[in-house]
């Protein structure tokens, strides 16, 4: 032992000192927040390719292929119209109920799919994560992007439904674009937070459908939002107004429809929409980044 120590000066050092001396870095260390954003940006092509690939893969075995992207929202709208519009007769409360219903439904489905996809974004892709290096936030962001494309198809269907239902085509329809973008940022933030939570708490996947259903009832998707004021105590009704999904749904409804009943003023809705997007986007991203090192463990 002594002779080899003389033969080589490095053998006096501990492993950590040796690494420091030759400027080696810790494998799999978490990059700084700024570098992480940079990395993510340089992986933007991977993110879009992955999102498109997922979209193509989800229809690849169906004979009608990507036609289902349009058929799915259409069928959904038909089913809900049958139940709530025709059988239960909720339509009496709102003018152009089918347009009202479909707007809420499609906007809600966007967030719902992103949340349920986000929970398994890490745990369902462990093979990929343990094989390749890439900023892990690519996965929840790609899921948001895939669902965004579903939303675009839904919006095309929705535009048709709204016009057939007798709403006029106005310049206000352009407000759809910022509303969709705000909701996408909000969704991406939620997806990232859910991805980290889901990677640690695997049981979360089972719980999400219940949470989402509750959220759906609190978002005034299936019935008129006037019911909140009518049936809830005042504090609860004003709490419901803060619900981000209700905010995004109302922004969409206002853009598409002339007379849709809303709970809040336009200014309040836009401010809330921006606030929620920034809050969820920033916090979700930071929360996800803090766990970056751990995702390979499962």
């Amino acid at each position: 032992m002594a002779s080899t120590a003389v033969a080589h000066p490095d053998s006096e050092l501990t492993q950590a000192q040796l690494a420091a001396r030759y400027g080696l870095s810790v494998a799999g260390a978490r990059p700084s927040l700024g570098r992480y954003v940079n990395q993510l940006w340089s992986y933007r092509h991977f993110i879009t390719a992955y999102a498109n690939a997922k979209l193509a893969a989800s229809f690849s075995t169906a004979r009608l292929g990507r036609l289902w992207q349009v058929l799915t929202p259409l069928t959904n709208a038909a089913v809900y119209y049958l139940i709530f519009g025709v059988i239960l007769g909720t339509s009496r409360e709102v003018e152009n109920f089918i347009a009202y219903l479909c707007t809420g439904l499609f906007v809600f489905t966007f967030t719902q799919s992103v949340v349920s996809g986000g929970v398994t974004a890490i745990s369902g892709n462990l093979g990929l994560i343990r094989a390749l290096h890439f900023p892990r936030a690519s996965l929840p962001i790609a899921i948001t992007l895939t669902q965004f494309q579903h939303l675009l198809a839904s919006i095309v269907v929705l535009a048709g439904i709204v016009l057939i239902d007798g709403e006029p085509l106005t310049l206000e329809w352009l407000l759809l674009i910022p509303a969709m973008l705000l909701q996408s940022v909000f969704n991406a933030g939620v997806a990232m937070a859910m991805a980290r939570l889901g990677s640690k708490i695997t049981d979360l996947k089972q719980l999400v459908p219940f949470v989402m259903r509750t959220w759906m009832y609190a978002s005034g998707v299936l019935y008129s939002v006037q019911n909140f004021e009518k049936h809830l105590p005042e504090w609860a009704a004003s709490l419901v107004q803060l619900n981000p999904l209700l905010v995004y749904i109302e922004l969409m409804r206002h853009a598409l429809m002339e007379t849709a009943p809303v709970t809040a003023s336009q200014t309040q809705s836009w401010l809330l929409g921006i606030g929620w997007a920034v809050l969820a986007g920033v916090l979700g991203f930071i929360y996800f980044w803090r766990g970056e090192k751990e995702y390979g463990r499962g």
């Binding site: 492993q15 950590a16 690494a19 030759y22 400027g23 080696l24 870095s25 810790v26 494998a27 799999g28 260390a29 690939a53 997922k54 193509a56 893969a57 690849s60 075995t61 892709n125 093979g127 990929l128 994560i129 343990r130 094989a131 390749l132 290096h133 090192k293 751990e294 390979g296 463990r297």
Partner: peptide, 29 residues
């Protein structure tokens, strides 16, 4: 650096790459 060490540390020069046959791909594509 794909599986974090729970104790101790690994120091490397640059980013090591794992050349495995189990890199997950999308079977439907």
């Amino acid at each position: 650096g794909l599986l974090p060490a729970s104790r101790g540390a690994v120091y490397t020069q640059g980013q090591p790459s794992l050349l495995g046959v189990n890199a997950a791909l999308l079977n439907d594509l």
